[in-house]
Design a protein around this nucleic acid. Structure first.
Length: 121
DNA sequence: ATTTGCTCAGCTC
DNA sequence: GAGCTGAGCAAAT
């Protein structure tokens, strides 16, 4: 079910584009506490969009340090992608620097992964 | 652990 | 319009 947005500038009602979600996503990212990560799925659920689109939205984020998209991983615990400099390897490194344990198989343990909806309620 | 099908906005032709 | 591509997911194998 597509979200509809009323745009005052254009004075029309249209389907939301992924740019419209970026600011919301940035805001949600700030809720994730130090030492924890959340998932693409979790954000997708909060915005009622497809999880794959969340990745696309993240890619738009031009300030990956200030708005920590590195704190978003796949729902199965794998690291996922990172388009910022250093790539997924840097993402993994910065996650570790928060004291989060990454298992040999390249996955993050469940106990570090939280649902973003739990933070808002 | 790996494969298979689903997803949908945006980009190319 | 048709076809492809992902910073993904879930069910089946």
């Amino acid at each position: 079910m597509p979200l509809l947005v009323y745009n005052i500038e254009e004075n029309i009602i249209r389907k939301a584009r992924i740019n419209d979600y970026l600011e919301v996503v940035k805001a949600l990212l700030q809720f994730i506490p130090y030492g924890k990560v959340s998932t693409y799925k979790s954000i997708a659920k909060a915005l009622k969009i497809n999880p794959k689109l969340v990745g696309k939205i993240m890619k738009l984020n031009d300030q990956p340090i200030i708005y920590p998209c590195y704190k978003i991983v796949k729902s199965n615990g794998e690291i996922g992608g990172y388009s910022g400099s250093g790539g997924a390897k840097f993402k993994e490194k910065i996650i570790r620097s928060e004291g989060i344990e990454i298992i040999k198989s390249g996955k993050i343990s469940r106990e570090y992964i939280i649902d973003i909806l739990d933070l808002i309620s």
